[in-house]
Design a protein around this nucleic acid. Structure first.
Lengths: 131, 131
DNA sequence: GTAATGTGAAACTAAATGGTTTCATATTTT
DNA sequence: AAAATATGAAACCATTTAGTTTCACATTAC
């Protein structure tokens, strides 16, 4: 029931740099197409098509206001990406754990916060410093 | 310097479902191409090309062993994805914060019970600001 | 009412993508 | 040495993608 059965999925939607820029832009505020396309070196129509792809993936919401259509970010579908990533977090954390085991005592490992995200480098540095 | 100057970037690499499946598969163990391609309904050559894209993005590492080339996951470049996502986490967390403010007191929120990601400090700061 | 504005749809194009089959090459195996 | 195996490179093809220009249609402004 995690939706995302549309014609475009999130992974595909964010594959394009222009679309990623669009998402950032629309995260700040709702904007009509003409204003949006002012931020890009391509035609308004091209931007419009990118917006359509994003809308298909559920990543933007459109609202008609008079003769203009305003778009804004809808971040929810990014959860799918997050979940996907989470699986791999496991792996790069295991690498870290292995490294820690090489460098530190059990104590250090016991301190492993179990926090899936966060800055790995910092975490590692913390451990080292902790010695 | 943080890599990702190759011909294929991470976002593009993970856009394809086959490649995502490849990453999962290669996360478990190192495998030679023929074995890998046994898991997919396409030709060995096609799989090989997907592997090339992944390698370009730095997401798999290849190692020659005798006449075979073994591939395995290299999760590091996914950090770029994680960082990109993190920006948007902010937004869906703010939505949560707004909801919390409707339902809960500041004290309760300070416990940040089910914070989706690790960015608790920011979240708390936002809440404080809102107070 | 007429002109101007904001937008999407359509038709088109060039390039990228995902796949195929065939071929060459290096390494084992016998 | 010859046969078998593992693989990548090349050439090719169909489809998708990212962009264009042109057109039609609402809505607002004059």
């Amino acid at each position: 029931m995690t939706s995302s059965s549309a014609k475009h999925d999130v992974f595909q939607a964010i594959a394009d740099p222009t679309r990623r820029k669009l998402l950032k832009l629309l995260s700040k505020e709702e904007m009509p197409v003409t204003v949006i396309s002012g931020h890009f070196p391509m035609s308004r129509t091209a931007v419009s098509k990118h917006l359509r792809v994003l809308a298909d993936a559920g990543l933007v919401k459109e609202r008609k206001v008079g003769r203009e259509t305003r778009y804004k970010l809808e971040p929810d579908p990014l959860v799918e990406l997050k979940d996907w990533l989470q699986y791999f977090e496991l792996f790069w954390e295991n690498k870290l754990v292995a490294l820690k085991l090489l460098v530190e005592s059990d104590e250090a490992v016991a301190e492993h916060p179990g926090a899936p995200f966060g800055r790995d480098k910092l975490e590692l540095k913390n451990i080292k410093d902790h010695k």
